[in-house]
């Protein structure tokens, strides 16, 4: 059959959310060059996040963190067959237009970069490519979905190698959903106002007993055990940022985290893949961060 171009529909909500569904049960790895991207793909990553620096190095570098140089993104796109994602600053819709033009498969409107807009997020429904956004709680997640996000991830506290904030955010989201499930519609309407989220999305979430889009975990996952912890808490998959390529043995760590996510409820496999990985990334106690070093409060 010959297809007329006008009969085809691109960038619909079904296609965007469908893309996110295909990532479920997978690990998305931060990479800064083609070689790391190939290691990630070979280890079984479902996608790579192309960056100029991993979050821990963004912390060290300081200054304004922006979208990666398109040259780096291009090289990573050419190196792998799995989807390539890219990060843009919160509210920076022109960086998003550029990444969409390059051919990035999903855009992360990310608090890891320095926000370009402290009032508004990107209107993500205006784009053909899907977006993923960070959230600390249900209200934040549903506001991002209302703006068109096709995937949510916990914010955690990126670049720390410390899973505590990711755990907090996953508990918050899952706990708030459980509370909604016990409410009637009038109570849900009141709750929707409190958490500043659209009532329709609040009701849909309550009825499904989960977010209307895929919900990954990110921000501090550094070991196979961390990844399995987030899966057992209800994540659909995980993002691993600095945890792989800042560890002593990135190849082994990457493979181990993929297998940990695949076997997240099997302690025998988790024990096996955790053996002899060498030192994980060093990590930071989040309580020692200065106010301007905390990333998770960017965007709301």
């Amino acid at each position: 059959m010959t297809m007329n171009l006008e009969d085809l529909r691109f960038g619909t909500e079904l296609i965007k959310r469908g893309f996110a569904s295909m990532q479920k049960g997978g690990v998305i790895m931060d990479v800064v060059n083609a070689e790391q991207a190939r290691i990630a793909e070979e280890a079984g990553a479902v996608a790579v996040m192309s960056l100029e620096r991993v979050p821990a190095d963004i912390r060290k570098a300081g200054g304004v963190a922006r979208m990666a140089d398109p040259k780096i993104v291009h090289e990573i796109i050419d190196a792998v067959s799995i989807p390539v994602m890219g990060k843009v600053r919160i509210g920076h819709f022109v960086e998003a237009q550029i990444l969409e033009n390059i051919g990035v498969d999903m855009i992360d409107e990310s608090e890891v970069l320095t926000p370009a807009d402290e009032e508004y997020h990107i209107v993500k429904t205006a784009f053909t490519v899907p977006f993923v956004c960070g959230a600390r709680n249900l209200g934040e997640a549903l506001r991002r979905i209302a703006e068109g996000a096709a995937m949510i991830r916990t914010k955690g506290e990126a670049g720390t190698g410390n899973v505590v904030e990711a755990v907090r955010h996953m508990h918050a989201i899952m706990g708030e959903i459980r509370v909604l499930q016990g409410m009637d519609d009038s109570e849900r309407a009141a709750r929707a106002r409190e958490i500043e989220a659209p009532f329709e999305l609040v009701r849909e979430t309550a009825e499904r007993g989960r977010l209307p889009v895929v919900n990954f975990s990110a921000g501090g996952i550094a070991t196979p055990a961390d990844a399995a912890l987030m899966m057992q808490l209800g994540a659909d998959g995980v993002f691993v940022g600095s945890g792989i390529f800042l560890s002593e043995n990135p190849v082994k760590t990457a493979r181990a985290i993929v297998e940990a996510v695949n076997n997240f409820e099997n302690p025998a496999v988790l024990a096996e893949v955790s053996r002899g990985l060498g030192d994980p990334m060093k990590g930071i106690d989040v309580h020692t961060l200065k106010e301007d070093e905390v990333l998770r409060f960017r965007g709301r």
Binding site: L8, R9, I15, F19, M22, I77, D105
Partner: peptide, 24 residues
């Protein structure tokens, strides 16, 4: 790439009416 993913209504042998297919 993902931006080229599409929906289309296509005929499928054995089905009377065409099928709404999601290509990702």
């Amino acid at each position: 790439r993902q931006r080229e993913s599409f929906e289309a209504i296509i005929p499928v042998k054995g089905l009377e009416d065409p099928y709404h297919a999601i290509f990702i």
